[in-house]
């Protein structure tokens, strides 16, 4: 591989600068490369299975103290009393609420189903307006104080990040294109369910918003996303308008955001909402059960598109509730409502 890194135009400009930038010019000619290219981890096998644990809830919260090294300094482990760090407390409680949803609703012991210890890092970076799952832990920034508050303030976002872990250990949907939008939607679905389950909300009481309360008062917006009405979560001078579609006809084709994974997730999100509302009651009990069965069946490919995923949810509903059940009908109607009619049970 050649090491020609400096375009001729820039080299010419440097040469004109005389010997003031001799070091840089020499470095440029030598083809500086100061960083390693990280290989994608997506195809790596998950960590080797640990022996099953009893109990199952084992939380550790760490503080990155404004830097970007992980995990950071341990500030709370399982059973410790709260400290006065609000973000650490929200992370600890959010890990617990997520564990509780999966254990109580689906009999799942932690995100890997085998009592995996739950790890969180707070105060990551400087003015870091984001949260993410890094394959082993959830990581939260404090926001920038202008657009975003701290990211632990939303239980649906905490659940969203941990659900990326559940996806990693189950269907491992590839994070690009339609499979990536499904990966994102699965995180929104279970993030919303964590929030609804913790508050004991019915489908009518739930907000169906992801990241409610993360924006500062300066922003014209309620949340990052709306599952019930994609495209309505925010409309702001600087941030723009919520770009999410709620129907396949409005699928966004883009190179950005790995093919719009946070954008096109609106379509399967709305399908889930329609199924949940059709069935009523607590969304995690039937609609959530169908979605959970679909991702844990072991038959969904990592590259599944919307149609394949929809079919998997119908298979799951038929398997658990029967071909003529309210649940199977609601699943069919939900997907038809977003432009993905299914062939039938």
């Amino acid at each position: 591989m050649t090491r020609h890194v400096v375009p001729p135009y820039l080299l010419a400009r440097l040469a004109e600068s005389g010997d003031r930038f001799d070091r840089a010019a020499r470095a440029a000619r030598a083809g500086l490369a100061g960083w390693e290219q990280l290989a994608a981890h997506r195809d790596d096998a998950p960590p080797a299975a640990r022996p099953p644990r009893t109990g199952g809830l084992d939380r550790t919260v760490s503080d990155a103290e404004g830097r970007e090294e992980l995990p950071g300094r341990t500030v709370r482990t399982e059973g410790d009393p709260p400290t006065d760090d609000v973000a650490a407390t929200e992370a600890y409680d959010g890990l617990g609420a997520t564990h509780a949803l999966f254990a109580e609703a689906y009999g799942r012991s932690s995100i890997d189903g085998e009592g995996l210890p739950l790890e969180a890092t707070v105060h990551y970076g400087d003015d870091y307006d984001n949260a993410f799952w890094d394959g082993e832990r959830m990581v939260f920034g404090d926001g920038d104080g202008e657009v975003f508050r701290r990211f632990t303030a939303s239980l649906s976002v905490i659940g969203h990040e941990l659900a990326h872990g559940v996806t990693q250990y189950t269907t491992n949907l590839a994070y690009r294109g339609q499979s990536g939008a499904l990966n994102e939607s699965v995180s929104d679905v279970f993030g919303a369910l964590v929030e609804q389950h913790a508050a004991g909300q019915t489908v009518d009481q739930a907000s169906w918003l992801i990241g409610e309360g993360l924006f500062t008062d300066a922003v014209q917006g309620r949340a990052l996303r709306s599952m019930s009405a994609p495209g309505t979560a925010y409309d702001d001078d600087v941030l723009g308008t919520d770009p999410q579609p709620g129907h396949l006809d409005d699928l966004v084709v883009t190179e950005e955001d790995a093919g719009g994974v946070h954008i096109n997730s609106g379509i399967p999100n709305r399908a889930f909402h329609l199924v949940a509302v059709a069935l009523g009651g607590h969304a995690w009990e039937r609609a959530g059960q169908v979605w959970y069965d679909a991702i844990t069946a072991g038959t969904l490919p990592a590259t599944a598109d919307f149609a394949r995923f929809a079919a998997a949810t119908l298979e799951a509903a038929v398997a658990r509730y029967g071909a003529d059940s309210d649940e199977a009908r609601a699943v069919e109607a939900g997907w038809a409502g977003v432009g993905l009619p299914l062939a039938g049970a």
Binding site: V5, P7, L10, L14, A25, A28, A33, W35
Partner: peptide, 10 residues
């Protein structure tokens, strides 16, 4: 320009 010249494009 110094910074831009140091970017490892290739």
């Amino acid at each position: 320009l110094v910074l831009l010249a140091s970017l490892p494009w290739s």
